[in-house]
Amino acid sequence: MPHSTQERIATRTPAPQPRVRVVRKHNVLVRISHWLNIPLLLGLIVSGISIYWASPIYQHNPNPQTGAFDYFADAGIWICAHLPGLRDYASPPDWVYNHASLGPYMLAPAMRLHWCCAYLFMLNGLVYLAGVFAGGEWRSLLPRLNDARGALRIAGYYLRTPFMMFRPRRRNPPHFNTKYNPLQRLAYLSIPVAGLLSVLTGWAIHEPMQLSWLAALFGGFDTARMWHFWLMWIFILFAVPHVFLVFVDSWDTVRSMITGWSTRLEIGSRANEP
């Protein structure tokens, strides 16, 4: 009988001072690995784009006027032609590389930075796994049977939200009786899965001879390179709404990733979470 225990405690404790109620939300290892992901993924992406530049996968015949043959170079030329103040930019084809990577012709330092971040990223993945199992949080990440419908409901809610300022009465987000809503579960699970696939495809293209079976698993060396390239976009596509929703949501959510606890006691999650 839970009630009687509570009463006993209440009668025994002398006049308690006001207390707050909190729940543990994230294991300390999960929190550490979460924040370490930011510099590591940033380092992997900027060095990765420099490495990509040495031999772009997606290229076309050189443009007769600009000589550019890859789509990032085309994007740089377009940006410099259309954004004010960039008309006199020294090398428009390099604009994207100068702003999203270490810059062109930086293959050797980019590879060193990539290996450094990659080994730390693999270690960080183990820290995350240790934390997610030690804290039992892995259960909250497992997909459920009707997650597809729930994820669509929340995605629809997010997409309608900008228009709700005209109809404030209708502004109640879908509620779910779980720590994360289905879209969160999908997003939070896809990141460790993408991390694992990035590591595997990374090894496949780093050691395509000694680990030729791994390269073959991803369709061979050249296809594994494409996998590795597109997996980068999963992290970028995740990070944009993730960071946006953190700012939309309350301080409690950010704090829970630093201190580990939250003052939101109910297990249910509202849609407005990152």
Partner: peptide
């Protein structure tokens, strides 16, 4: 095994909470 566990609700003095928040913000 796979079912989500209910979170443990912990009662804590506000001063402790503030102190721990400060400490964690500093460490991180």
């Amino acid at each position: 095994l796979f079912r989500e566990r209910a979170p443990e609700i912990i009662e804590v003095a506000p001063s402790t909470l503030r102190r721990r928040t400060r400490r964690d913000l500093f460490v991180f």
